[in-house]
Amino acid sequence: MGGPLLKAEAIRAGYGPIEALKGLSLSVAPGEIVTLIGANGAGKSSTLLCISGIHPIRSGAIHFDGERIDKLPAHDIVKRGLVQVPEGRRIFPRLTVLENLQLGAYLRKDLDGIKNDFERVFALFPILAERRAQAGGTLSGGEQQMLAIGRAVMSKPRLLLMDEPSMGIAPVLTAKIFDTIRELNQQGLTILLVEQNAHLALQLAQRAYVLETGQIVLEGPAQELLADPRVRKSYLGEE
């Protein structure tokens, strides 16, 4: 294995006078699931927005597959295979399920590959096949999350950034979605997962970072962090 697929070095970013990320560094190796956990406002979503080029960084550097990407516009980063499933799903509510998925494949020209990926998404989430002609907004929260993941898969990502896939979703469906994330990873997809549900995320991921007020305070194999007393106290709700 070569170098890391994604490498962020000492990135700083903010909103006006507020500094959200204070020199954060992280890396994701090919084939890994890495999770980023932390409290509300720690900077988890900001990290993902910076990596995918939607929010600019003030200093530091981000490399994807050896290429520096932090100066590229967001749509060019997607072209390189770094795709984000945004927080709150953000499917297109008035477009049909099928149109949502077609937009996922927006940048692709390989018709056969697109057709295969439709099959793949429908195999992962049979409910989407059933509802392909329905407007995305008519789906339940969990189904919308499935659609958001399916839409991202349609863009043939090499690295998938996922922001809070469990947000606002019934526990039964959360479990189903986490199973799917594992399945996608086993099919070879590298994943960087941001989660508030630290317990679920740490069980799924191989490695984890703990983020506090814009800085990484702890990192290591997920299993170790799951056992770490500091993590158990702050994020898993133990005394």
């Binding site: 939607i54 997607v78 499933v85 477009l95």
Partner: peptide, 17 residues
């Protein structure tokens, strides 16, 4: 479809490239 996606959610459209 591209226009519709921008009308509905510009950020999500950007995430699709």
């Amino acid at each position: 479809r591209t226009w519709a996606s921008i009308r509905e959610d510009e950020l999500a459209a950007t995430c699709m490239g």
